[in-house]
Amino acid sequence: MRVSRTTSTGTSRLHLPTRTVGTAVVCLPAGTPPADLAAQATATLAARGLTTSGVLPHFHTHTRRTGRLLDCWNGLTSGGPLNLLDLHGMRTRAAATAAAEWLLWQQVVAGTRAAQPFWAFADRYTADPHRYPLAKAHGDYLSQPRVLAMAAHNAVPGQARPLPPSALEAFQAGYGTYVNLAWLAAVPGDGLAPQTGGWLTTRSRRLADLLDYLATANAHLAQLPRDAHLVAVASPA
């Protein structure tokens, strides 16, 4: 299935989705009754050809006016008006967590060579699947010393701080990039449905494509009125 992505320039690009969208954030207009937020978010994604499996407690909030929020629990909510959501706190916490994670990663992979992300091997497979089968692509990726170091770290039983293999390219881009990426990704999640229509998500696993999506999504969030609503929905591909 092909999906179109509306970019910040207003153009529409066709691309093949390459990953499951886990958390979709839906923008809804001001005045949407709290009791209707979940149904409206589901309908909005359905109109874009996306299925849902319920709302998610994605946003932080400090307000006591919980009657205007959706599914409040332990400082988290699945949605509500922007002026009652703590988006700044979400971004700050995500950046702090990423900073500690990158410093740990640097220790884990110390002394190893830079590794190629999996999409580089997948591209070789796509270009010539007969000469370079998918099994070899997986094997070549996993056998890189830096990837092996991350896998060994994650394999320790009860590992308190596993390192996400999918973040290899972002880790290697440096401390600042990794922290900024976490800040950008904290609110929009894996996909964003703007009020004006369309669907924003990354075109591929490449870091450049992910940054393109996050820049566009955060620019859209920044221009929303403070009484607009955001709703987080679990949305498998």
Rank of each mutant, 00 (worst) to 15 (best):
M1L: 11
M1I: 10
V3F: 04
S4C: 04
R5F: 09
T6C: 08
T7I: 10
S8E: 06
S8M: 07
S8D: 09
T11W: 11
R13E: 13
L14D: 15
R19F: 15
V25T: 02
V26Y: 06
C27S: 09
L28A: 02
P29C: 12
A35S: 08
Q40L: 15
A41H: 02
T42K: 13
T42G: 15
T42C: 15
A43H: 14
T44G: 07
L45P: 05
A46T: 14
T51S: 15
T52D: 11
T52K: 10
T52E: 12
G54K: 03
V55Q: 13
L56A: 12
H58R: 08
F59W: 05
T61E: 02
T61H: 12
T61R: 00
H62R: 11
H62K: 10
T63E: 03
R64G: 12
T66G: 13
T66D: 12
T66Y: 02
D71L: 08
N74L: 15
N74S: 13
G75E: 09
T77L: 05
G79D: 02
G80L: 01
L84D: 13
L85I: 09
D86E: 12
L87T: 11
H88G: 13
H88N: 13
H88T: 14
G89Y: 00
G89F: 02
M90E: 12
A94D: 11
A99T: 06
E101K: 14
L104W: 03
Q107G: 10
V109N: 03
V109T: 08
V109A: 07
G111M: 07
Q116H: 06
Q116T: 02
Q116K: 14
P117V: 09
F118R: 15
F121P: 04
F121N: 02
R124V: 14
D128G: 12
H130D: 14
Y132H: 08
Y132P: 07
P133K: 01
L134I: 04
A135N: 07
A135R: 04
K136N: 11
S143I: 00
Q144Y: 05
R146N: 06
A149K: 05
A149C: 10
M150I: 10
A152N: 11
N154W: 12
V156T: 13
G158Q: 00
L163H: 09
A167N: 13
A167D: 14
L168I: 11
L168N: 11
E169M: 03
E169Q: 09
A170E: 11
Q172T: 03
Q172C: 07
G174T: 06
Y175V: 09
Y175C: 04
T177M: 01
T177F: 00
Y178G: 01
V179D: 04
N180C: 06
L181I: 01
A185T: 15
A186N: 14
V187Y: 12
G191Q: 11
L192W: 09
L192I: 08
A193H: 01
Q195N: 10
T196D: 10
W199T: 01
T201N: 06
T202W: 05
T202K: 08
R203T: 08
R206C: 09
L211M: 07
L211G: 00
L211A: 06
H220S: 06
L221E: 02
L224C: 12
L224T: 08
P225G: 02
R226T: 13
L230W: 03
L230H: 04
V231F: 01
V233W: 04
V233K: 01
A234H: 11
A234P: 01
